[in-house]
Structures are given as structure tokens and as C-alpha cells.
Design a binder for these strands. Structure first.
Length: 829
RNA sequence: GCCGCCGUGGUGAAAUGGUAUACACGAGAGACUUAAAAUCUCUUGGGAGAAAUCCCGUAUCGGUUCGAGUCCGAUCGGCGGCACCA
């Protein structure tokens, strides 16, 4: 009978749903396993084949884990707040909620058609007031602890559209919609103090099983650097008298302080606007600041781009170590949002400073000499940026850089003009958006009481209906126009109050959703404590409570490494400190998938017209083929181009498996020993490959087995059923169908294949009994000799030296060394 | 630019520091067929040779090692992130 996926797939999807086979059971006696994939943003384009890839992979893990005896939770939900839906609403006038409903319905249908074993009873949606009530509640906890605060921050502003723009909407410094040059505009914004957790976020990585590259990316993003903050004395004449003030400077290279030629301020440094009227070249400075504000941070940091700057005429600074008076410049390669917004310029020992000093003719003074040479370099042709030995630094001469830094900090501390300082590259999280489609920030402004938190009993602060989804002309969110929503009473004094009209960024809802899955319908707390403990801390292996558990496996894309992954770790650590969740780290293990690219290796996009719609693939080849293909196409962690031709390969494989059913005969004689060994080897290989996320090689191993079995005239039913079982997590529909037919034939009770145990293999049979002993001369293969797998070194040497081919090479040669590795002999001559 | 990753046949790729190219696609030849499709069998990194066999080959250059696709250094090329796309 022909393999017709369309006939069997819907049948089994319905069966699984009716039998409720994938429900995660709270407090089950079985060991728990919480398997999580990043929930999607339900865009109007529908499911991307890239989504299918990671959901299939984790579905394989989930299905196999159930067969291994775990109580698995594999949930799914929607991260539905965000710009694309809002923009779509602006264009069509449809309510974002309506659009979201349509999109999530479509996503859910597509997911179901692929046979993913999600526990749909736990489905969540970040835009559901019953969900965002708790997002707002967590914000209030942060607020109460002083971790949410307001600050003026620059946003992208289009003067023609009169709206704030997301970075993505700014193309080459211009508004994506109208092409107008984008300006920076200062606006009061809600900020979250993630920097308070910088050390904890580094520290927490020690206990979790993340790929090294992810840990490294996060650590570098946080960018902890230890150094010193030194107060330079700023001096200028205001027409009547000399004014003095401190200009703090952060440096990790205090050892180079005797080589400072100038002080450089960021264009946004407060000193500049404070003393605006005393700067004699103000016009020039103003022009420079305006130009700099248009540059992106990337442009400013670019070491290859020309460095520019303007001196602050009449201003100077005093180096507290030397007492020397040095000029003060402003330059945009000094960034306002890192350190103190002021840096000391040491041209001899910093590349950017060197280029800058050369261009503007500033002093270049060597103060650190390379350790190995001490030639007294006269003309410096490039910056020496490594540590070395101090020269030209008075009492610190002769010290190595590291010691010099320690001594210099003590000196600065004793003289009270400096101290040890740790700086982070990490910046606080801008948490305000002037958009409609996000969680309203639950804050009120009372005429008498000032800023007031919305009482918890009044949550959620629901999004009101609006007519227009565009922001207002003042740059405020569209909510500002809904007067009867904005105007409210102060919960403290009952007086007049206005609501905050900013909404939260899309990242808010996704920063804690993994907690909600444990108890998705609770309306008293964000999740029940006992359920959090059960799902987040019970170690599946020991069934005992431990603090390292959290989600057992969390899969997502590399693109989320420094934002979502860090933000959600921050929220969880905060909730842990508040005693609200039982583990400090949310995810015990992190894995990541590679992107699915279009044919030819370019990104899939509507504009390129190379988007593959999973619906079409399912219709043409079946869900099992799509699943299997996406797992077979390459290593799970790598980006891989789609290849429609490649799909037929796995379809043929499934057809082959299907047709094997015709050869099954329970009276069949046991196949030969080699095939039996291959079967056990395959079970072992597939088991290990799934556990190691090596799905592509697991499939190739099954292909090899099927190719071998196909050569037999008759196949015992046990072989066929074992093969089907190890295939079942990959291609669940065909496996169920084969299992049912085999069960009927064997008259065993009908039960889902997913209620079966994962097969064990015989360790002895899974080993090779014969090998080809490889004989090398100087590392080059010269002969292969069949031998027993447990050959001794002595015997292997005998065989090697007895070989005719080998004797050719060693005749008249001096054998220096013989290396034996168990299956290889290397003779060094 | 900075941080992280990757580079192997015509293509997707496989390979605990130990036989480079498993598995699959494509291509070529053949079988079956009136024919086509499907299916099955064989060939398929480059070069030399009638063959046995030999030489070269994992982006480039160099190093470590008995032995390097794998480890180290440099270079070139590609991808992800760079804080308001998610």
C-alpha cells in the first residue's frame, strides 16, 4: 500500500488531542522535564520554516523524554505585542487585538498540522490582560525597589512625521517612511536598572549549562572592567575670576597617566552646556555637537574612520599626578554613555588617541616601554598599547604596568583625587515606548502627590480603545489622546491625576513567560509557589530539589543572546531576590538553533520572494517529511539554506520505511549477525545523537539501517517495531500508523507508540567485533588489515610488520617509533 | 569598527587529534517499460597510469605533533549581535 501522509497525519493529530497525550501533569511522581522553545512573535506572514526547525528539534527531545519516563512540559504561547502589528493596524485601521487573534489562530493551526506535542492547555498570550496584569505587577515590584526610574534619553525623531522612530525605521540616518533626516530628541523615559545586576549576571553563568560562546557573548556585553576614576581639575576664566571644578575620568590604564596630552569630553558632556557662554569658540563647538549627534554609535567607535574634534578654547585641565596644565577637547569618539563621558588622551599608548594627536599636533609622550627592549625610542611611529615598564613617570619609573596601577590608585586615594572604580559596558534598559501596542506602564501622576504607582488591586491597567494608532504630534504615545483614560483619580489623595501614557517594550512579556507556563491561569499570583518549585527546581535526575534546575532545556536563536536572554535572566534574578521564585537562574541549559536561509544562502524575505511556506510543504510531502528534512539538512546549530530538491531524499526514506511493512513476517528467521549488530549500533547511535542535538547524523544512521534491512527478503516484526520506535520522535505520524498496523497484526493491545518505552540496546552487540587495522608510515596510510576489535598492541605490531605493503616502506629504514591507538599503527621511520 | 561564530566534493553535509568526503541531493550509465514517471543497480574530489598503484586535496600562509579538517598564530571571505525589529 502506498504511503499517503495526508491520509494518516490528521488522524493521529486528532487522536493525540483526544487522548490528551502530551499534557504536563503537575506534581506527577515521574521526574519532571521542562522543555522550552522561544515563543514566536505571531506575524501576519505565518509560521516560518525556521520556527519549524527548532520546534521539531525540541519536539523530538520532548517525545523521547516522555518515552524515557519523564513528566514532560513542552508549552507554547505568543509574544504578541510589538511594532509590526501596530504598523499593520495603522495601515488598515484594524484593531491590533483582532489582527493578533487572526495571526495566533493561524500559527496554532500550522503548529498542529506539524504534529508538535505541545501542551496546549498551558497556552499563553502576552497581550491578554490576564497575562499582562502580571507583567505590570512585576514592573511595580521593580519600581518599589528603585530599579525602575525616569531619565532623559535621546530617541530618534522624525521632524516631518513628528514621531519617534525605532532604530529599524531609521535607514542611513533617514526616516524610512518619508526620507527626512532623523534627529535626536531628548525625552523622559522609564529605565530599568539592569546594571545593578551586572555582577550577578556574570556570576550566575558559572552554574548553568550554556554553550561557551553564549557565556562569552554575555560576559563581553556586560563588559566589566576594573580601573580607576581620577578627578582632573577643570579650569577656565569666566571674565572675572578663575573657576575650578572636577572632571572625573575613568581609565583602565592609570599607569599611562604621565603621558596624558589632553582631556577629551564627549559632545554631550554637561560641562559644555553648563559653561556654554564662556566658551569663546562656541559657534564652532555647537556646529560640531550638532554634526556628532547625527552619527551612530557605530560610526563614532569605528577605529578606521577619521577622528575629529574641536578644542574648548580658554578651557584647560590639570593632571593631578603631574600638576601639568593640559588642553580640553571635545571629540565624538568619546562616548557619553560609557564611564564618565570624559577620557584622558594618551597618544603614545592608545591607537585612537595616537591618530587624533597626530592629526591635531598634540604631544606624544612615551611613558610605558616594552619589557624586552629599552632602546629609548625617539620617534614614535605607532601606539604601544600593551603593558610594559614605566618611564618618564617620576617616582613610578621602573615599575611594571600592573604594579604601577595598584600603587598609583593608592597614591590617588591618599591625596583624595581618585579611587578604584569598576565600570560596565552594560547600560540600563530603556523601558519606555511611545506606542500603542504594548503593556501600559502602571504609574500615575497626581497634581499633589506626584508620581504614584497604580495599586496592585487595580491591575491590569488595560489598554483603552483608540481611533488612531499613530503617536501624537508631541511624540507621546497614542494613549495620550484618550482623555477619559488619561485623566483619573489619585489612589492616595483622590485628587486629579493623569496616567503614564508610555507602554513597555516587547521584551517585557518575554522576560518572565517561562514562569507563567507553570501556572498559566492563576489570577491570584503570577504563578503558584508550589508549582514554581515543582517545575523550576526539581532536578529530573535525582527528583530532589536543587537551585540549578530552572527550565531543563531552553532553545532559542543566537540573535537573542544579549537582549532577551539577558533581560529574562535579570528579571528572574530580581524575583529570586524578592523571594518570589525558587531559583536564581531561570534556565539550566541553553541550546541554540541556526537560521533557515533561502535557497542559495540568502535570508528568506517577502521582498526577495524566496519564502518557503510550511503549509505548502506539508500539503505536497507531509508533515513527517518536513520535520525529517529540517532535521536532516545539517547540524542543528548552523545556518542552512533551504533546498527543495533535498526534501525528496527524506521522503524516499519514509517511503522505504513504509514499504518494509510488506516484508514483515513474524515467522521470518533471525537475520544474520551483522544486521543484528547494526540494529543495536543504530539504537545506540540514535539515542546518543538525540541527547546531543545531533539530529542530522541520527537520521543518517537510520537511513543506513533501512538500506541494509531493505536487502532482506523477510523481516521479523521485532526489528520493524524497534526501527519504528526510534524513528517515532522524528516522524510521529508514520510511526503511529505503522505501530498500529503492527499491533493489529500481532494482536497486542492498541496503545500509542508514545506510551512505549524508549528501546534499550545490547552494549556488546552495539560494538564492532571486527575492524580494519590501519597501518601508517610517518602518518600516511599504507595498508589496512582486517583484525579483531579487541586486538592487542603486540598482535597489531606483528600484523603490521608482516604486511607486504608495509615491508616495502620499512626495508632498509631505521624504525624510530611505533604508535598504537587501538585501531591504528603508525610506524615512524 | 567592536564582540561572538563559521569556511570540507557540483550541492546540503560526515569525521572522541588517528582511514577525509558517511548519509542525502544532483549528474552520468544501465535495468524494467510501447513510452514517460516511479523504482532498482552501478559510477561520481582532482591529476597520472592499461592496471596494480602513486601524487595532490578540508579558504590562504605559517606553527605545534609520530599524526592536524580538528589545536595555536596571522590573513582573506561569510554570518549573527551592537541596546526602539523580534
Amino acid at each position: 500500500m502506498e504511503y499517503q501522509p495526508n491520509k494518516i497525519e490528521a488522524k493521529w493529530q486528532k487522536y493525540w488531542e483526544q487522548e490528551d497525550l502530551f499534557r504536563a501533569e503537575n506534581f506527577s511522581k515521574k521526574p519532571k522535564k521542562y522543555i522550552l522553545v522561544e515563543f514566536p512573535y505571531p506575524s501576519g506572514d505565518g509560521l516560518h520554516v525556521g520556527h519549524c526547525r527548532s520546534y521539531t528539534a525540541l519536539d523530538i527531545i520532548a517525545r523521547k523524554s516522555r518515552m524515557d519516563g519523564y513528566n514532560v512540559m513542552y508549552p507554547m504561547g505568543w509574544d504578541a505585542f510589538g511594532l509590526p502589528t501596530e504598523n499593520y493596524a495603522i495601515k488598515t485601521g484594524k484593531h491590533p487585538q483582532e489582527v493578533t487573534k487572526k495571526n495566533t489562530d493561524n500559527f496554532r493551526r500550522q503548529m498542529k498540522s506539524l504534529g508538535f506535542s505541545f501542551d496546549w492547555s498551558r497556552e499563553i498570550n502576552t497581550t491578554d490582560p490576564e497575562y499582562y496584569k502580571w507583567t505590570q505587577w512585576i514592573f511595580l515590584q521593580l519600581y518599589k525597589k528603585g530599579l525602575a526610574y525616569k531619565e532623559k534619553m535621546p530617541i530618534n525623531w522624525c521632524p516631518s512625521c513628528k514621531i519617534g522612530l525605532a532604530n529599524e525605521e531609521v535607514v542611513d540616518g533617514k526616516c524610512e517612511r518619508c526620507g527626512m533626516e532623523v534627529e535626536k530628541r531628548e525625552m523622559e523615559q522609564w529605565m530599568l536598572k539592569i546594571t545593578a545586576y551586572a555582577d550577578k549576571l556574570i556570576e550566575g553563568l558559572k552554574d548553568v549549562d550554556y554553550p561557551e560562546r553564549i557565556k562569552e557573548q554575555q560576559i563581553n556585553w556586560i563588559g566589566k572592567s576594573e580601573g580607576a576614576e581620577i578627578n582632573f581639575k577643570g579650569v577656565h576664566f569666566d571674565g572675572k575670576s578663575e573657576i575650578e571644578y572636577d572632571i572625573p575620568v575613568f581609565t583602565t590604564r592609570l599607569d599611562t597617566i604621565y603621558g596624558v596630552s589632553a582631556l577629551v569630553l564627549a559632545p554631550e558632556h554637561p560641562i559644555i552646556s553648563n559653561f556654554k557662554f564662556q566658551i569663546s569658540n562656541w559657534k564652532k563647538i555647537e556646529k560640531y555637537i550638532k554634526k556628532a549627534s547625527k552619527k551612530s554609535e557605530m560610526e563614532k567607535k569605528d577605529a578606521k574612520k577619521e577622528k575629529t574634534g574641536v578644542p574648548l578654547v580658554g578651557f584647560s585641565a590639570i593632571n593631578p599626578f603631574t600638576g601639568e596644565k593640559i588642553p580640553v577637547w571635545i571629540a565624538d569618539y568619546c562616548l557619553a554613555n560609557y564611564g564618565t563621558g570624559a577620557v584622558m588622551m594618551v597618544p603614545a599608548h592608545d591607537e585612537r588617541d595616537f591618530v587624533f594627536a597626530k592629526k591635531y599636533g598634540l604631544d606624544i609622550k612615551e611613558v610605558v616601554a616594552p619589557v624586552e627592549i629599552d632602546k629609548g625610542i625617539k620617534t614614535i611611529t605607532e601606539a604601544y598599547t600593551d603593558d610594559g615598564i614605566l618611564v618618564n613617570s617620576e617616582e613610578f619609573n621602573g615599575l611594571v604596568s600592573r604594579d604601577a596601577r595598584v600603587k598609583m590608585i593608592s597614591y590617588a586615594e591618599s591625596k583624595k583625587f581618585g579611587r578604584k572604580q569598576i565600570n560596565y559596558h552594560l547600560r540600563d534598559w530603556v523601558f519606555s515606548r511611545q506606542h500603542y501596542w504594548g503593556e501600559p506602564i502602571p504609574i500615575l501622576y497626581c497634581e499633589k502627590c506626584g508620581e504614584v504607582a497604580v495599586p496592585e488591586k487595580d491591575l491590569p491597567v488595560k489598554l483603552p480603545d483608540v481611533k488612531k494608532y499613530e503617536p501624537t504630534e508631541t511624540g507621546e504615545s497614542p494613549l495620550a489622546n484618550i482623555k477619559n483614560w488619561v485623566n483619573t483619580k489619585c489612589p492616595k489623595c483622590g485628587g486629579k491625576a493623569k496616567r503614564e501614557t508610555d507602554t513597555m517594550p516587547n521584551w517585557a512579556g518575554s522576560s518572565w513567560y517561562f514562569l507563567r507556563y507553570t501556572d498559566p491561569k492563576n489570577n491570584k499570583v503570577f504563578a503558584d509557589k508550589k508549582l514554581l518549585k515543582y517545575w523550576m527546581t526539581i532536578c529530573p535526575a535525582s527528583q530532589k530539589e536543587c537551585n540549578k534546575g530552572g527550565v531543563d532545556i531552553y532553545n532559542g536563536g543566537m540573535e537573542h543572546t544579549t537582549l532577551h536572554l539577558l533581560y529574562s535572566r535579570f528579571w528572574n534574578q530580581f524575583l529570586y531576590d524578592e523571594g518570589l521564585v525558587p531559583c536564581s537562574e531561570p534556565y539550566g541549559k541553553r541550546t541554540s538553533h541556526g537560521m533557515v536561509l533561502g535557497e542559495g544562502g540568502i535570508k528568506m524575505s517577502k521582498s526577495r520572494g524566496n519564502v518557503i511556506n510550511p503549509d505548502n510543504v506539508v500539503e505536497k510531502y507531509g508533515a513527517d517529511t518536513l520535520r525529517l528534512y529540517e532535521m536532516f539538512m545539517g547540524p542543528f546549530g548552523d545556518a542552512i539554506p533551504w533546498d527543495t530538491k533535498g526534501v525528496v531524499g527524506v521522503k524516499r526514506f519514509l517511503e522505504k520505511v513504509w514499504l518494509l511493512g510488506e516484508k514483515v513476517n513474524d515467522q521470518a528467521p533471525n537475520p544474520n549477525d551483522q544486521l543484528k549488530r547494526l540494529l543495536h549500533k543504530t539504537i545506540k547511535g540514535v539515542t546518543e545523537d538525540i541527547d546531543n542535538f545531533k539530529f542530522n547524523t541520527a537520521i543518517s544512521k537510520m537511513m543506513i539501517l533501512v538500506n541494509e534491512i531493505s536487502k532482506e527478503k523477510e523481516i521479523p516484526a521485532t526489528y520493524y517495531m524497534l526501527l519504528t520506535t526510534i524513528l517515532s520522535p522524528f516522524a510521529p505520524h508514520i510511526a503511529e500508523e505503522i505501530w498500529e498496523r503492527s499491533s493489529l497484526k500481532l494482536r497486542t493491545p492498541r496503545k500509542s507508540i508514545f506510551e512505549q518505552k524508549w528501546p534499550a540496546y545490547n552494549k556488546e552487540l552495539a560494538k564492532d567485533d571486527e575492524i580494519e587495522l590501519v597501518v601508517q608510515i610517518n602518518g600516511k596510510v599504507r595498508d589496512r588489515i582486517p583484525a579483531s576489535a579487541d586486538i592487542t598492541e603486540e598482535h597489531a605490531r606483528e600484523l603490521a610488520f608482516a604486511s607486504e605493503k608495509i615491508s616495502k616502506y620499512i626495508e632498509g629504514q631505521n624504525v624510530k617509533k611505533v604508535i598504537f591507538t587501538g585501531k591504528l599503527v603508525n610506524i615512524v621511520v
